[in-house]
Design a protein around this nucleic acid. Sequence first.
DNA 1: GTATCTGCAAAACATTTGCAATTCT
DNA 2: AGAATTGCAAATGTTTTGCAGATAC
Lengths: 136, 136
Amino acid sequence: MINNVGDFLKSHEIKPSYQRVKIYEYLMESKEHPTVEVIYSALHPEIPTLSKTTVYNTLKVFIEKGIAMAITIDENEVRFDAEVNMHGHFKCLECQKVFDFDVETLDIGNDAMDGFQVVEQQLFFYGLCNHCNHES
Amino acid sequence: MINNVGDFLKSHEIKPSYQRVKIYEYLMESKEHPTVEVIYSALHPEIPTLSKTTVYNTLKVFIEKGIAMAITIDENEVRFDAEVNMHGHFKCLECQKVFDFDVETLDIGNDAMDGFQVVEQQLFFYGLCNHCNHES
DNA sequence: GTATCTGCAAAACATTTGCAATTCT
DNA sequence: AGAATTGCAAATGTTTTGCAGATAC
């Protein structure tokens, strides 16, 4: 876990403005893969002058500098995650929640990717989560 | 390959209207994972009365009936694919093209999904395609 | 004091909705 | 005729852009 967000941002060539620190802290602590709307609504009470534009700008900077990633598991809006190490995402079609799951080794059992340089991987599963599955 | 699209749609409980047949034919023959805009622009010359609403409606029906799938590999717009069997998608960050690749076995090397019922899987890779990789 | 960052307002898109006209059987 | 389908126009929602004011070094 990161103990000083300001220093962490600096070490990634990001100037640690008040807004950026707060947004990164929220993203790091939240496990719900928040959208821009969720981040904005969560921080607005504490930072009344905050604008969605700043949230968008800030997340773009985080992604460019490699300390956050965009998750396109929804069709309509983009979610964000401060966990950039390889892991999968499961979206429950019932409660709409998005869960992380470990991906120890991603073996697709072929060598079809010859000549393609992979920079990023996204693994999305859709279905019923533990809780919703046992209700129905 | 499907030789009679009308019969194919009927066999999936979809009434084969002129527009639906044309849209499915285009989706099946196109290998570029088209967006609504691309489908509409491609078919509009041939079907001047076609509307984007119909393209949206039709794709929604196809997905509900299981003969097409939505691909959220882009952040802004949804792509569509008539190939519903398991396969992966690779998006080139340079030329923006989306390629299919085989996924023979998807082994994530753990058993973290206990109690979760998986209905659909999406595997997205991002990077440089064969062509763009050898240029730079 | 100059760069950068922020945030408002407007614009730009993708997608959805309401509804009337059309089509098919 | 009756039910489903189509398509126009308007609404909605997300994201981007232009720019002026605020902030930081």
